[in-house]
Amino acid sequence: MNLLDIKNLSIELTSHGENILAVERVSLALKDGEIRGLVGESGSGKSILAQAIIGVLDDKWHVTADRFHWQGVDLLRLPIEERKQIITKDVAMIFQEPMSCLDPTNSIGEQIEEALDGSKFSGYFWQKAQQRKEAAAKLLHKVGIKQHDICAKSYPHQLTNALCQRVMIAIALAKQPKLLIADEPTASMEATNQAQIFKLLESLNKLKNMSILLISHELEKISHWTDYLTVMYSGQFVEAGTTEQIFNTPFHPYTKALVASTPRTSTNLIKKSLLHTLPGSIPSLQHLPIGCRLGPRCPNAQKKCVLAPQVESFQGHQVSCHFSHRKEY
């Protein structure tokens, strides 16, 4: 049984009396202990999908799905409060900008202590307070912050972006979630810090058997750390499979373009020559193409592409394209 099993999830935005289909019939499944990458250009709907999973979208967004199961429980059939209790207990998320997510008026230690489960502490109130401090220090140490005493007393503006991201991971781990969603966890970081964060997430996966949904617009960066990849474009599902399948035998023209633009597959290029790219840019929500949204940029677009393609599966390798079975794909 999958830990998370979503089928044909759509997210509609109501803006100025107009309904915009930001995410259209996207399916996503995660197994227990799996690291899955969710990849696509900025604006492809990755973050909105993640926010829909944890239930933080406001009333302007309407979420529907044929199936939205968490450990076999259909969340969409549950009352909102009951759904929130399940998700907040089992799912945690770290966001792109840790500095903006942390409270500037509270110390790091206070914010981690607030995230801890109070039912695990016993004794008088001063004993519980001491236990909370010790638990917060252990979490900071677990995410690789050696000077946890100094860090706990500091405020977010006194720390680097990399340290703040580690603090966000510590807060996410406070309730021992079964699924950790990491939305661009290394954005604006130096290469050394990026590698440290990814290694930390990998160790959490191996030691705690924690499932991780790793969101990024850089395919090359996360491919080293994931077991499976799901590719999105402009709110639509494009392709999914093992990381090896996506890199070695991509079916969809968009996935092919992503793979071709990575240094790993561009070793034969002449120095200082341009990497492979698709013409144009991702469409805005107000001007979405009908049918396959890649159509205006796709080098192999045909009349049939004005209809949304169905998802086909080839030995676990899924693709949403009318012509994926053809040799040229």
Rank of each mutant, 00 (worst) to 15 (best):
E82D: 15
I112H: 10
L139I: 05
I86P: 01
S154P: 00
D117P: 10
A136W: 01
I94L: 07
S119I: 05
F95G: 03
S119K: 13
I80M: 07
D117Y: 11
K153A: 15
S107F: 02
Y124L: 07
R132F: 08
K142H: 14
F121E: 06
R83G: 04
R132L: 13
K153N: 10
N106W: 15
D149I: 07
E110W: 08
K138N: 11
Q96L: 05
Q111D: 09
I87G: 04
A136S: 15
Q85N: 12
P104N: 09
Y124R: 10
S119G: 02
P98L: 09
K120Y: 13
E81M: 10
A92F: 02
K133S: 15
I80T: 09
P104T: 09
T105R: 09
R83T: 03
L139M: 08
S154N: 01
I94C: 05
D103G: 06
I108P: 03
E82C: 01
Q131I: 07
V91N: 00
E113Y: 04
L102D: 05
I108H: 07
A115L: 12
E110G: 02
Q130S: 13
K120N: 13
D90I: 00
G109P: 09
A129E: 15
R83Q: 15
T105M: 14
I150S: 13
H148F: 15
E81T: 11
D103W: 05
D103H: 12
A135E: 14
A129K: 13
E134T: 08
E114R: 11
K133W: 06
V91Q: 01
L139N: 04
T88C: 10
D103K: 05
I108F: 10
Q96I: 03
D90T: 02
R132C: 08
V143I: 13
E134P: 00
K128G: 06
Q111G: 08
Q130N: 11
K128A: 07
P104R: 08
K142W: 02
Q111W: 06
K142C: 06
A152Q: 06
E110Y: 11
A137H: 14
P104S: 10
Q130R: 12
F121S: 06
K128E: 14
I150H: 09
Q127M: 09
T88Y: 11
K120H: 14
S122F: 15
S107H: 04
L116C: 12
Y124G: 11
Q85F: 03
E110I: 07
I94G: 02
D103L: 06
H148M: 10
A135R: 07
K120G: 15
Q127D: 14
T88D: 07
K138V: 00
T105I: 14
D149E: 14
V143L: 09
I150N: 07
A135I: 02
K153I: 00
E114G: 08
E113D: 12
K146L: 12
I112M: 10
Q85W: 01
F125L: 11
E97Q: 12
G123V: 03
E97C: 00
V143W: 04
S100F: 04
E81C: 03
E110N: 13
Q127P: 02
A129P: 00
E82P: 00
S119Y: 06
H141P: 00
M99Y: 09
